[in-house]
C-alpha cells in the first residue's frame, strides 16, 4: 500500500467537498479518478498528497518527503526559470547541490523527450513541451506516488495521446503508483489498471472498473471490444452517479 483514504470527509465552509470516500492505492498501480465537475477529485488528490487533512476519516501514506509528486492541469512552471531549473526545483528545495541537481534535471528532461530544450524558458515552449517539463519536474525525485490532476486537459487530442503513451512508458521504467484525475473516459480506461468512478459532489464511489490488459497498452488497444466495453461500463457508472440521490 502506498496511500489510502478510509471513509474520509472534507468540509469546506458552507459545503461538503468530498465523502465519505475510501480509496486504496497499491504500489506500482495506475488508478484513474473519474467524476463530474465539483465531485471532489482534486480534494481527494490533495489528501493523497498530504497537502490537506480530512475533516473526518483517516489518511495513510507511506512515501516520505519528496517521494510524492504532483502534476497539475496547467504546466505550473516558473516563467523566470529555464526548463532545467524548473525541473530541478524539487532537488533545489531539498538542498541538493547545483551541479548534481542540474545533471539529474537534464536526465529527467531527456526521459520526457526534451533533450536540447534544457535552457529554454517556459514562454518559448509549446503547451505540450511545457507539460513535459512539468512531468520531468515530477519525475526528477523518482517519486513512489505520482499524482496527475487532469494533466492533459488543456492539450489537443494528438498531443494528449502521445503524452498518455509517454506516461505509460515512463511508468514502465520505475513503476511508481500513479493516480490521475480526468474527465476523459477513454483516456481513463486506456491508461489505468483501475478506473474509480465518483458520484457528483460531495463525491462518493459510484463504482470501479478494472482492466485486465497488460500495461503499457499494446498498439491498437483502443480498437478492441474489451476497451469499448470498459468505456461503456465507466460511462454507465458516471451517468448513474450523476443522477439525483
Amino acid at each position: 500500500m502506498i496511500a489510502a483514504l478510509s471513509e474520509v470527509e472534507v468540509d469546506y465552509p458552507r459545503r461538503r467537498a468530498l465523502g465519505p470516500f475510501s480509496l486504496e492505492i497499491g504500489a506500482g498501480e495506475i488508478v484513474a479518478l473519474v467524476g463530474p465537475s465539483g465531485c471532489g477529485k482534486s480534494t481527494a488528490m490533495r489528501l493523497l498528497a498530504g497537502l490537506e487533512a480530512p475533516s473526518r476519516g483517516r489518511v495513510a501514506r507511506t512515501p516520505g518527503r519528496g517521494e510524492t509528486a504532483v502534476v497539475f492541469q496547467a504546466p505550473t512552471l516558473a516563467p523566470w526559470l529555464s526548463a532545467r531549473a524548473n525541473a530541478a526545483l524539487p532537488l533545489a528545495l531539498a538542498g541538493v547541490g547545483r551541479t548534481e541537481a542540474a545533471a539529474r534535471a537534464d536526465a529527467a528532461l531527456a526521459r520526457v523527450g526534451l533533450k536540447g530544450a534544457e535552457a529554454a524558458r517556459p514562454a518559448q515552449l509549446s503547451g505540450g513541451m511545457a507539460m513535459r517539463v512539468s512531468l520531468a519536474r515530477a519525475l526528477v525525485t523518482d517519486p513512489k506516488l505520482l499524482l496527475l490532476d487532469e494533466p492533459f486537459a488543456a492539450l489537443d487530442e494528438i498531443t494528449r495521446r502521445a503524452l498518455a503513451d509517454d506516461v505509460l512508458a515512463l511508468w514502465a521504467q520505475a513503476r511508481p503508483a500513479i493516480v490521475f484525475v480526468t474527465h476523459n473516459v477513454e483516456e481513463a480506461v486506456y491508461m489505468a489498471s483501475r478506473v474509480v468512478v465518483m458520484t457528483k459532489g460531495p463525491g462518493r464511489t459510484a463504482g470501479e472498473v478494472a482492466t485486465e490488459a497488460a500495461l503499457p497498452r499494446a498498439a491498437g488497444f483502443r480498437t478492441t471490444p474489451a476497451f469499448r466495453a470498459q468505456v461503456e461500463a465507466v460511462s454507465a457508472l458516471l451517468s448513474q452517479g450523476m443522477a439525483p440521490v
Binding site: 490533495r46 498528497a49 498530504g50 497537502l51 518527503r65 519528496g66 510524492t68 509528486a69 504532483v70 497539475f72 496547467a74 505550473t76 516558473a78 526545483l89 524539487p90 528545495l93 531539498a94
Partner: peptide, 14 residues
C-alpha cells in the same frame, strides 16, 4: 505567486 506553485513548495517542504 501561482497557487499551484505554492502547493508544490508545500509538497517539497520548502
Amino acid at each position: 505567486a501561482d497557487p499551484d506553485l505554492e502547493l508544490l513548495f508545500d509538497l517539497y517542504g520548502a
